[in-house]
Design a protein around this nucleic acid. Structure first.
Lengths: 214, 214
DNA sequence: GAGTGCATCACACGAAAATGTGAGCGAATA
DNA sequence: TATTCGCTCACATTTTCGTGTGATGCACTC
């Protein structure tokens, strides 16, 4: 165990909950609450002054919301752990917060039994999440649908050329790169267009990147 | 609690571990192991015959590996829960498996204390992951870096036009869509190219999509 | 009120891409 | 053996793009 207490900072606009969390934290000698605030307008100054190792951040705060606050903190510090506390478990809030740079995401209803454990977990390289949140996060990754097993029946050569095209190479460069004639490149690209059902480089590249064909 | 046991299916090439898992599972009356195999070549047939609700899948199997097996199962069934069991916690295996459609991901060293709990968790809409795995998954989401606050100083109009271009629209279509002349479109696109430091539509679109500018 | 930035349009020229048609070669296969 | 498929190349025509130069009007700022 650590010999020095972990420094925490709490943002939560509901006073009752703020007191509950403070009480929870005080139960463990591992932690010291360096501050708790009901709004997040001066988060940058407060974080720099109080030097917390973990921030507990409500998502729905007056003025600037918790997600904006996460972005703000991440703009000058990328090592502080930020745990989001929320009543929402809807897709948008969760993913926005995680993309903004949150390290973990706890539903408030699990707070009493999970808070202490979660703080330890995040300090040890984990990413604590309530079960439903974890599912959302995984679902988000899965909807990047992998390579779709060559949905459009492109041949190996066609895929190579589409990939090169997607990097911004001209027909001439592609021809040089693969050691084939520019007319051959034309032919391949014509076939690619037919298979992808597009009519221009840009459409093909857009489709290729968005559908992870390359 | 459920009144009927949850049907499990196990793929694991190490016989010792296979027996350990069997033993673990038999400790709980909530589960029934409908089968366990050392290789995954006939996974489709086995899954269809044995009708498991949860599959426990080692990642490193002879013949077809666990990730391929996940894809295979997902190709005909999207509701079975698949828990990956692995000694790896490296980025690539984890993310490949999750993108392939795994529902959770357990490091083998945590198996004894976490397996039962994890099966319950996945059945209840969660996505059980070892702490380090959760961190990897979150990190993957975070590296999609949001919009970068207009890194290239594009104006509002330029962003609109770049977005339209990225959908595969021609100059002519863009002009019609925005109700401006095609020469104006040219001008905007010229400026976009200068700011993005590219020299073609394809390069611009590639950059726009990959860096999430649109 | 001079300067600056943005959006708008015009004209013109060369380069590149899109489209169509046709064909040869080798490998796999029915 | 005949056929199909993938890769290769050629030529011609039309369309679209990329680039340069220049200009107008508007809003905002110093």
């Amino acid at each position: 165990m650590q010999t020095v207490s972990i420094r925490l900072l709490l943002y939560e606009d509901n006073q009752q909950l703020r007191e509950s969390v403070s009480a929870l934290i005080s139960l463990s000698t591992d932690f010291v609450l360096t501050g708790s605030f009901g709004e997040v307008l001066h988060v940058e100054e407060q974080v720099k002054n109080l030097q917390p190792e973990v921030i507990l951040m409500d998502i729905d705060l007056p003025g600037m919301n918790g997600i904006e606050a996460v972005k703000k903190v991440r703009s000058f510090n990328s090592s502080i752990y930020i745990l989001m506390l929320t009543v929402f478990d809807d897709n948008k809030h969760v993913l926005d917060a995680i993309c903004a740079g949150a390290s973990g995401y706890l539903l408030k209803k699990y707070l009493p039994e999970k808070l202490i454990e979660s703080i330890h977990e995040v300090m040890n390289g984990g990413a604590p999440m309530s079960p439903g949140i974890a599912r959302l996060v995984v679902a988000q990754l899965q909807q990047l649908p992998a390579d779709q097993a060559n949905k459009y029946q492109l041949t190996a050569r066609e895929k190579e050329i589409l990939a090169s095209l997607s990097k911004g190479n001209s027909y001439k460069l592609i021809a040089a790169h693969f050691g084939i004639s520019i007319d051959t490149v034309r032919t391949h690209i014509k076939h690619i267009y037919e298979k992808l059902q597009v009519r221009s480089q840009t459409e093909a590249v857009s489709k290729a990147i968005n559908e992870k064909l390359v």
